[in-house]
Design a protein around this nucleic acid. Structure first.
Length: 742
DNA sequence: AACTGTAAACTTTTT
DNA sequence: GTTTACAGTT
């Protein structure tokens, strides 16, 4: 809630939570109950009552949540002209990364580790499966990884896992778990789960580290406590073991991450864990109008494994939620776009509207429809930029620069762009590195023809390692310490001297120009990061470019989709239900309320998973302040095939409260928001057409078939042969001979 | 070694 | 409908 100031009045329970100082405290905060207000005011209150800010640790799940909390505490404190110097507000993962930067030597043997993303994890686990001589068609990387991740979330390290393994399956996993971890260790790398697991192990095993951290953080706060896993519980619990000043905030009804190892008993058993703890329920909803609160409450009451909790509001009844049945996903998207337009005319701002869905795959049709209608929109995908091929390549160069032991990064870049080093040369190098106990980059400087390398490969490898040596020397140089943009300079230099820039500027590929621009954007991102970093660390000693690069890469590794939600831009936000947790909008549309989608197919045969789906729906509904628009389509095309659907059981469960069911839209009722591009338009030889990716082009030739007609078009970047039905061409100027229908 | 085209798997949700 | 893996070709 943006209206938060020190003078806003609080309810008695809110007040009690804010003033609670010592001892364990659980705040059971229903949706819209002013949770963030309570947490931020409590922090401000602690500081005002004399607690030094650096003794306070507040943990969240996303960077965005951390940032918002930090900002609001700062705002509160400024009015009292106090300082928040040293206050730690961070995500669990970023906090653990920082702890391991200080103490990592004792658990993982290094403090300068690289954080592996899911693609890196995949490479590592594939290597592990191979090293264990197991068949990788029986052992799919994804499921092995899931098993390992599961163990790590439950604080089961390799040794423990091995001891407990009894059957063939578990023993095989144990073997791969060990090999996988060995690979990570020899590469000086950790995965996401390791950040938590290794921190927990540190706290359990190392008295000195534990002492240091519990002395430093006298007050611990955890947001979204229902989403913590066992490992996170142990981390918080160890830090707070002695002073017991732990305050957790959460709502069991909003627990939607059990699939990722979140352990709901953490919040349910809080009172058992901390005998004399205080529990404060916040049930009054300040966010949503009456009808919406009622629908949400009615739905969640269908969950059986649930602590009964009253959810109520004193706001007016407001609008009734609308449920609409549509023929297919295109009509669905159109109906949402129309509703957005209608509300926009009523004065609701686009940035106060959001469209939610169960799976990312649903975003495509919605996106297309919004684009065609010309309505500003953003898809919340913070990770998308860093998933791009060219960005991954550049990042791999940078990672190898700060961590020469990162063999996964080495393999990714040694021959991109191509330098005449193929798979045989690489496996030869791998053997060489293994027998000398060296990293691949280290070994690459030592190759010679005598070891069986071709002259071309040997020279290319030597040149490659020499480039890195030079970057390292310059990255450590004291000279650039005072330079205003040392990090951006370094990134730019790596992009250039790695050959990536040249590769994409001279390449013949159609999206090369875009890729080149993205590389430019990476440099801008580095500049931005550098400015922010320096503003936040003003009084620290100057950093070398390599130090900055280290921090930049850590930042890149820990971005999430939810971080991309920017309330400042005037656009409708499209995102998954999961990503919407913790946010609120005037208008919420939820698409795809169908069996198999919401609830998802995989939850159908498991009661507790089904309840999680219901909670997910509940989370979505409770994001809305004033308008709720629920849709389902009778047919939906997924993976290229159209299927009949059944409406979600959740729709039935919500009836009994006021709901407006709009009839399906009749064909003649479809407004002109979405002009069909094809229709009766024709493309002919000589026509000017526009293609989404290739741009403008001239039609040279058309080969007609009943299905799959091919069309030859001359674009600026070259001649292309496309299948007419799929090309999604836009006619720019028609020509009237030899016409062909779309 | 590098490039090209086709088969197959894929989709739940994410730090 | 998209991405990745692999096989075949130059």
């Amino acid at each position: 809630m943006s209206t938060d100031t020190k003078t806003t009045s609080l309810t008695d329970s809110q007040q009690e939570a804010v003033e609670h100082k010592n001892g364990p405290l659980l705040v059971l905060a229903g949706p819209g109950s002013g949770k963030t207000t309570v947490v931020t005011r409590r922090i401000a209150n602690l500081i005002a009552s004399g607690v030094p800010p650096w003794q306070i640790l507040a943990l969240t799940f996303t960077n965005k949540a951390a940032q918002e909390m930090r900002n609001r505490v700062f705002t509160l404190l400024e009015q009292d002209s106090l300082h928040a110097q040293g206050l730690t507000v961070s995500t669990f993962h970023a906090f653990c990364a920082r702890v391991l930067r200080d103490w990592g030597e004792r658990v993982i043997g290094t403090t300068t580790f690289t954080i592996y993303d899911s693609a890196d994890q995949r490479s590592a686990v594939k290597a592990a499966i191979k090293a264990c001589n197991l068949n990788d068609s029986n052992w799919r990387p994804a499921s092995v990884l899931a098993a390992i991740s599961n163990a790590k979330n439950k604080l089961i390290d390799v040794d423990t896992f091995e001891k407990e393994a009894s059957d063939f399956y578990t023993k095989s996993i144990a073997k791969m778990y060990r090999t996988y971890d060995d690979i990570l260790r020899s590469n000086d790398a950790v995965d996401f789960d390791d950040l938590l697991l290794q921190t927990a192990r540190l706290l359990e095993r190392d008295g000195e580290a534990r002492q240091h951290l519990e002395d430093r953080y006298q007050y611990v706060m955890i947001d979204e406590y229902q989403d913590t896993n066992h490992t996170q519980f142990v981390i918080a619990n160890k830090i707070a073991a002695n002073h017991r000043n732990i305050c957790v905030v959460g709502d069991p009804d909003q627990s939607v991450y059990a699939w990722r190892g979140a352990d709901i008993s953490n919040i349910l058993d809080f009172e058992e864990h901390y005998g004399e703890g205080t529990v404060i329920p916040l049930g009054r909803n300040f966010r949503s109008t009456g009808h919406l609160v009622k629908v949400a409450a009615t739905l969640i009451e269908h969950n059986k494994q649930r602590k009964e909790k009253k959810l109520f509001t004193e706001l007016e009844d407001g609008n009734e939620p609308t449920i609409v049945t549509l023929e297919n996903e295109h009509e669905e998207a159109e109906s949402i776009v129309r509703e957005v337009t209608r509300l926009q005319n009523e004065g609701v701002l686009l940035k106060e509207m959001s469209v939610l869905y169960r799976v990312n795959a649903l975003s495509r049709v919605l996106e297309d429809t919004f684009r065609k209608a010309g309505i500003p929109h953003v898809v919340a995908r913070g990770t998308a930029f860093y998933d791009r091929k060219e960005i991954k390549q550049a990042i791999s160069y940078l990672r190898l620069l700060v961590n020469p032991k990162d063999d996964v990064a080495f393999v990714r870049v040694i021959n991109t762009p191509t330098r005449g080093i193929g798979s045989t040369s690489i496996s030869r190098l791998e053997h060489l590195a293994l027998s000398h106990g060296m990293s691949l980059l280290g070994a690459s400087s030592k190759v010679s023809k005598e070891q069986g390398f071709t002259a071309r490969a040997a020279n290319a490898m030597k040149k490659f390692s020499e480039t890195f040596r030079q970057w390292q020397i310059d990255g450590r140089s004291e000279e650039s310490l005072t330079a205003a943009s040392s990090l951006a300079d370094l990134v730019e230099r790596v992009v250039r001297e790695s050959g990536l820039e040249e590769f994409y500027s001279t390449g013949s590929g159609e999206d090369d120009l875009e890729r080149l621009q993205n590389l430019g954007e990476l440099v801008s991102a580095a500049t931005e990061f550098e400015e922010r970093f320096e503003a936040e660390n003003e009084d620290s000693s100057p950093y070398t470019p390599l130090h900055l690069l280290f921090a930049f890469l850590e930042n890149v590794a820990l971005v999430s989709d939810a971080d991309a939600v920017d309330p400042e831009n005037g656009a409708v936000t499209l995102m998954t239900l999961h990503a919407s947790k913790g946010l609120e909008f005037d208008f919420i549309a939820i698409a795809g309320l169908e069996e198999g989608l919401l609830p998802h197919e995989r939850a159908k045969h498991d009661d507790s998973q089904m309840e999680e789906e219901r909670r997910l729906c509940y989370v979505g509904i409770t994001r809305a302040r004033k308008h709720l628009f629920l849709t389902h389509a009778k047919r939906r095309t997924q993976r290229g095939v159209s299927n009949r659907t059944m409406q979600s059981r959740f729709i039935q469960e919500m009836t009994g409260v006021s709901i407006t069911k709009s009839p399906a839209i009749e064909p003649w009722d479809v407004p002109d928001v979405v002009p069909e591009e094809s229709g009766d338009q024709t493309v002919t030889v000589g026509s000017l057409v526009r293609h989404k990716r290739f741009g403008l082009g001239k039609v040279q030739r058309i080969i007609r078939r009943t299905r799959g007609s091919t069309i030859t078009i001359e674009f600026r970047g070259g001649v292309k042969h496309l299948v007419l039905e799929y090309a999604k061409l836009e006619l720019v100027s028609p020509d009237h001979n030899n016409s062909v229908e779309f």
